[in-house]
C-alpha cells in the first residue's frame, strides 16, 4: 500500500508505541537484573540501575543448580528434536509418496489426534509412564516402581511423535514431482535409499520449520516436566526457574537475571532464524 508522508509518520509512531509497550517489561527486567541489592530498599522510581552489577548473573548462576537444569534441557530438547525430525519426515514421506493399504485412514486418524489437548490426557499419560514394565523398579507387569516417571524417557519419548510434524512433512513431500521417485525405482533404489538419498537432502526448509516448532515447544515446556518429574536432578530450566523463585523470591535482581538467562537461547535462535521462525508460525496456520 502506498501512503502519504503523514500516514507513514502516523504508522511509524503507532508501531513505535506498540513495540515499546510489548518490549518494556523485558527491558525493565533487564535493568532490574543489573541493579544492586541495596537499591531495592530505596523505594525510588528509577528505570536504570544506580550502579550496574553484571555480576548478578554470576551470583544467580551460583545460587541454583543451573548446570544440571541446563544439561537436562539441552539433552531433552536435542534428542526430542532429532528424533521427531527423523520419525516425522519418514512417516510423512511414506504417507505422501507410497501407495499402501490404509494410507489415508491411518493418516487421518493421526491427524485427529492433533485436536486432543495435552492437558486432557495428562492423567492417563502419567499412569502409563508410571506403569512402563521393567523400568524404574517396575516388574514385567509394570507394577511396584515408578516406571518412566522422573526420568528422561517421560520427557523425551512422547515428543518423538507428533501429528503436526507428520502433517507438515506429508504436505511438503506431496509437492515433489512423481518423476523423481520413478527414476529412482528404475535405478533399483528402495524406499529407504530414495528417502535418504533424495528426499532428505531436499528437506532443509521442512526441517527448519519443524525443528523450530519442536525446539520452542520442548525448551519452553513447563507443564510436562512439572507433572512427570519430582527430583531436583531431573528439573529442566523452566522448572529450575520456578524453584529458584521459591527460594529467592525477594531478590528480584537475581530472579530477573535467571529469567533472562534461561530465555537467551530462545531469543538468540529467534533473532538468528527470524525468517524461519515466522515461517514456522505461519505454517501452523495452513491447515485452517
Amino acid at each position: 500500500m502506498r501512503l502519504s508522508k503523514v500516514e507513514q509518520g502516523l504508522a511509524y509512531a503507532a508501531l513505535l508505541l506498540f513495540s515499546l509497550v510489548t518490549i518494556l517489561p523485558l527491558l525493565l527486567a533487564f535493568f532490574t537484573s543489573m541493579k544492586g541489592d541495596d537499591e531495592f530498599s530505596l523505594q525510588a522510581i528509577r528505570l536504570l540501575p544506580l550502579e550496574w552489577h553484571p555480576g548478578n548473573y554470576v551470583r544467580a548462576l551460583e545460587m541454583g543448580d543451573w548446570l544440571t537444569y541446563l544439561k537436562n534441557s539441552v539433552w531433552v530438547t536435542s534428542i526430542a528434536l532429532t528424533g521427531s525430525l527423523l520419525f516425522n519426515s519418514i512417516a510423512g514421506f511414506a504417507f505422501a509418496r507410497i501407495a499402501f493399504r490404509g494410507n489415508l485412514p491411518i493418516f487421518l486418524t493421526l491427524l485427529a489426534g492433533m485436536m486432543v489437548p495435552a492437558q486432557v490426557i495428562i492423567i492417563p499419560q502419567f499412569l502409563i509412564m508410571k506403569s512402563i514394565p521393567l523400568f524404574g523398579g517396575n516388574d514385567w507387569l509394570g507394577a511396584g516402581g515408578s516406571g518412566w516417571l522422573d526420568s528422561y524417557y517421560a520427557l523425551i519419548v512422547p515428543e518423538l511423535a507428533g501429528a503436526f510434524g507428520v502433517f507438515m512433512a506429508r504436505q511438503f513431500y506431496l509437492q515433489f514431482p512423481k518423476a523423481l521417485d520413478e527414476a529412482a525405482y528404475i535405478d533399483g533404489a528402495g524406499y529407504l535409499r530414495l528417502f535418504l538419498g533424495i528426499y532428505v537432502p531436499l528437506s532443509g526448509p521442512l526441517f527448519a520449520t519443524l525443528g523450530i516448532f519442536k525446539f520452542v515447544g520442548v525448551w519452553n515446556d513447563f507443564f510436562h516436566p512439572l507433572i512427570y518429574t519430582n527430583s531436583a536432578s531431573m528439573r529442566t530450566l523452566q522448572l529450575g526457574l520456578q524453584t529458584f523463585r521459591g527460594e529467592h523470591q525477594v531478590q528480584y535482581n537475581l530472579l530477573m537475571a535467571a529469567s533472562l538467562l534461561i530465555s537467551v537461547p530462545i531469543i538468540a535462535m529467534f533473532f538468528i532464524f527470524q525468517k524461519q521462525f515466522i515461517r514456522s508460525m505461519v505454517a501452523s496456520s495452513v491447515k485452517g
Binding site: 518490549i23 525493565l28 527486567a29 526457574l241 523463585r245 530477573m256 530465555s263 530462545i266
Partner: peptide, 28 residues
C-alpha cells in the same frame, strides 16, 4: 518492529510470569 512485537511470544510462559511478578510487585 515485527521481531520486537513478537518477542514476548517466544519466551517461555514461566519467564514471562517472572517478569510480570516483578512488574506487579506491590512495593517495589
Amino acid at each position: 518492529f515485527r521481531a520486537l512485537i513478537y518477542l514476548p511470544g517466544v519466551i517461555s510462559s514461566v519467564a514471562v510470569a517472572m517478569t510480570w511478578l516483578w512488574m506487579l510487585d506491590p512495593l517495589q
